[in-house]
Design a protein around this nucleic acid. Structure first.
Lengths: 150, 150
DNA sequence: GTTCATGCAAAAGGTTTGCAGTCAT
DNA sequence: ATGACTGCAAACCTTTTGCATGAAC
């Protein structure tokens, strides 16, 4: 089971993080970690609640909200924006940086990594003496599939 | 007065838009337009409320919220995200497209336009048969000034 | 005069907080 | 045993909606 091996690694990382921060490993946090791992890509708090229900978990929504920042702090999740007015998170653990193509018709999110753009970003930042820590690039439009439709 | 000349032009555009859409030119909409014009750059609904107070305007917050989408429809404002969890708007009327350098220390937003990046974006989109309608690029980090500070 | 816009109050939705009890360490 | 975590309920903040009044065309 390759996947569960990866999960074990994530679990280890998470437990270590908690220990280092003097935080505790609770059943709720374990369930959250599994839910996050299952969702993988991008999700809203609401998606996470649904996933928890699928796992027959009865944790309170409050607990989920209280723990999301901890996952961000542990570099497992990132709070992303994605041109939506609603909060979204994305799993970044063991993932390379990437940006997003977002179809405004069907909502599909395609990830890409285009080194040349990043190089130009650095060049631009240098002009402004700006030190880039991170960036978000979203290309919005219509995907191949949706262009077919009239 | 160069500025007020520009405002007159904006006012004309806005009135024309309203007429075309069968909407009405009310004192509230006029006050909103002035507030938006005064704020120019990026602002939150809250900033807009403050600006209206400065103008001694007593319009209800509800009216402001109801009208913001109209300004977007009129291509005067754009709803932007800017990595914040709060809603923000930006005046786009008579402005060229640009992206943002955002200082995570002092919050300063610097606008830039870098043609070469846009060209690469198109090249990338072509690879995915994706049709770009718009995009957002945010570079987050520390600005020149904040790098000086220890 | 007709239709659309405004203001009030109230609802709605998502998120946060105080507090008492519970559980990991 | 201690201090951190959870769940409940309630608060909170921003945004939206129903309805009656008022104003632009």
């Amino acid at each position: 089971m390759g996947v569960s091996k990866q999960y074990t690694k994530l679990l280890d990382t998470f437990c270590l993080f908690l220990k280092q921060k003097g935080k505790r490993f609770t059943p709720e946090r374990e369930a959250l970690l599994l839910a996050v791992f299952s969702l993988k890509g991008h999700f809203s708090p609401e998606d996470l609640i649904k996933q928890l229900h699928k796992q027959d978990n009865t944790m309170s929504v409050v607990t989920m909200y209280r723990n999301l920042p901890i996952f961000v702090e542990a570099n497992i999740l990132e709070r992303t924006c994605l041109s939506s007015k609603h909060t979204r998170y994305e799993m970044i653990w063991a993932k390379e940086h990437h940006d997003h193509l977002i179809c405004t018709d069907c909502g599909t999110i395609t990830e890409f990594n285009y080194e040349a753009i990043e190089i130009l970003q650095e060049a631009l930042a240098a002009q402004y003496c700006f030190n880039i820590e991170r960036h978000h690039l979203e290309l919005l439009g219509t995907c191949h599939t949706c262009q077919q439709r009239v």
